[in-house]
Design a protein around this nucleic acid. Sequence first.
RNA 1: GGUGCCGUAGGCAAAUUGGUAAAGCCGUCGAUCUUUCAAGUCGAUGCUUGCGGGUUCAACUCCCGUCGGCACUGCCA
Length: 482
Amino acid sequence: MSVRVRIAPSPTGNLHIGTARTAVFNWLFARHQGGKFILRIEDTDLERSQPEFTQNILDGLTWLGLTWDEGPFFQSDRMDLYAQNIQALLDKGLAYRAYDTPEELEAMREAQKARHEAPRYDNRHRNLTPEQQAAFEAEGRKAVIRFKIDDDREISWIDLVRGTVTWKGRDLGGDIVISRAADTHGIGQPLYNFVVVVDDIEMQISHVIRGEDHIGNTPKQILLYEALGATVPEFGHTPLILNQAGQKLSKRDGVTSISDFKQMGYTPEGITNYMTLLGWSPPEPMTEIFTLAEAAQQFGFDRVNKAGAKFDWDKLNWLNGQYLHSMPVEHITDTLIPYWRDANYPFDETRDRNWLEQIAALVAPSLSRLDEAVPMTRYLFMPLTFTEEAKAHLQQDGSATALKAILAATDPDTQLTEDAIQTVIKQVVKEQNLKKGLVMKSLRASLTGALQGPDLVQSWLLLNQKGMDRDRFEQAIAISAS
RNA sequence: GGUGCCGUAGGCAAAUUGGUAAAGCCGUCGAUCUUUCAAGUCGAUGCUUGCGGGUUCAACUCCCGUCGGCACUGCCA
């Protein structure tokens, strides 16, 4: 049997990191098995589904490199199929119409709670007589359709990551609603648990790989597979991604959508690598830094951990940095340009290309996120703002002397080279009898407005190419005097 | 409350069928390089495997109990 897996996000929000991680495991498994990875958009909740979220999900998956082989399929296009299957269940007597009002259900649960019982539907409308049904309809009540669940059934499956999992029918909460309320004899909007099964059957999904939060849905769905006369697929429930407090990561935890990560300057390679590590571990000779394709060669559920994993920014940052450090200059320059542009730094992409590449080469080795390049390179693009420490340094004895000497020792009409800079520094140190540290710090303070930052000689070179160095020395000398 | 799942250092985690002194990575700390920060390099720190029993020559790995965490418990997905 060929392997067919799917990722089925619902467009009620941007692509979430948890969904993306599930997509990674599905993708990895499909590639490892030579199977198909299918994308299905679960938009049965008409109220909450939005087209822009669908777009965000598609864009996110594409950006991450999680390409799909079939789809996207939309559940909203398949309503007839669901209605047919619900009718079939109705015809077979496996499902029925229930006329309870939301208020009645609420009251029932309250009563159960008061009696310290587990809230569940008591199947009160399972065996209504035609007369009773007619009476409810005469009242103008609408009916949901419920699927019968046998209290005495025991359902179990061999989970790909957890082994045998068993549930009792009585713990499933009574007959489940598979379609929303609709007028007499009509079939309302089909609900998640039912739709998933119909689609997975129809799309011949062989392995359902999803988050652990779906474990409780699985027994209900297995019963539905049986009722629809279909083969039950394999199930694998992956551990959840947890927040600092150890709870399921949710939008309330701040940055959780892939588009946010992208904007913050994480690379798709870094994110997918990290998400894979959250639950899966590579076999021995392999290091923790790997591409999706490399992971796919080794991927298997035997190496997927069962416990939830806390999301660790430190490790993500480190991993992302590894990718940034090894990125070719042209590539990282291309990637950095949008960040500089968004910061409104003035430059001409074409004419300044070489200069921009030098900047990229200068800062890339110390980045862990792309957006860090913005504050880090600000002094190369914008007028200076001085930190208090920098000002204080410039006001020290010898600082102005050093800068004046440097001004005198350099020719405004000749572009500097690295060697020339080294020579000038040595010369000034010797002639003015100053400490090298003081000269260097004065240079840094005057050129960058700060006492720490990227390599100073390279920075000066870059500023010199733009003719931005001498004015800064003058400005600094003025500060020295004040 | 009920049901289910899970529990190896601060975080991610490894450990062939129970068998050496419980890998590795991140973090932290220190050293080094540098005018500086970051990065890099080198080194160090930390778990008696939630806890208590049991089986065994031997248990992170098996059994029993216990505690804790999380997830689910919808006419959401």
